[in-house]
Structure formats: structure tokens, C-alpha cells
Amino acid sequence: MKTEFRVYTGIGIFILVMLLVYFFWSGDGGNSILLFATVGLGLLPGAYLGWWSRRMEPRPEDREVVEPGGVADQLGAFPTHSIWPFVLGVGVFLTALAFVFGIWTAVVGLSFCFSAALWGTLSSRRGGLI
């Protein structure tokens, strides 16, 4: 996890340096805010990953040498099919069309969205019905 930490933090620091040069050279506050937010996008996950990487043993995928068979049964449950992403996608599509064709498509679309949110959540509780 240390490498992941370095990737994020490195990008954050690089853009921080760029931000400082840009801001003091141009005096442009508007675009500097965009760069400032981007620094956060690098440093926030970087800090999270760095915090954890110091407090946990290297994961199997971080180790150079792994004993065969020593990491079995680490994988969780993965769904193979679910209708709810499709229902949610159609719901979002119809809701988005309301911005063009009027509120009536959102009435239908939001009903799809709520159904998908409800049944999608219920169908995935305890990692069971997936």
C-alpha cells in the first residue's frame, strides 16, 4: 500500500508546486482554486493510504514473496447478475430527460430510481441474494 500512497501523494505534491508557481506568477485566483481542489484530490487519498500503510502488515498483493496456498479464501462474494443497475440506469436516463422535455419524464424516471434503490439494497443485504 506504500506505493499507492506515494502515487497519490506524489501527484498531489506535484500539483501543489504547480499551483504555487502559477498563483504567484499569474495572480489568477479562479483557476488557482481549481488547482487547489486538485491538490486535495491527490493529498486526501494519499494521506488515507499513508495512514493505513503504517498501521497494517503488507497485504498479500504487496509482498514480493508469497507462499503458494497461503492466501486462500480471501475473496468475497461477487454478484453475477442483477436487474437493478439496468432499472436505475433507465430511471436516471428518464429523469435527466426532464431537463429537456419537462417534468413528466422525471415522474416516471424517479419511480424507477426509487424502486432500484430499494430493491437493489434489499437484494444485496448480508451479501446473500446476489
Binding site: 454478484p79 453475477t80 442483477s82 437493478w84 443497475p85 440506469g89 436516463f93 435527466a96 437493489g120 444485496s124
Partner: peptide, 18 residues
């Protein structure tokens, strides 16, 4: 996130149709 993956596709398809 397999179901999020599926949702991504449907948003892509419907976005293209739009």
C-alpha cells in the same frame, strides 16, 4: 463494484442515445 460497473454501462448507452 460489479453492480456499479453495470450502472456505468447503462448510463453510457443512454447518454449516447440522448
Amino acid at each position: 463494484f460489479p453492480r456499479l460497473n453495470s450502472l456505468s454501462y447503462w448510463l453510457f448507452l443512454t447518454g449516447g442515445i440522448t
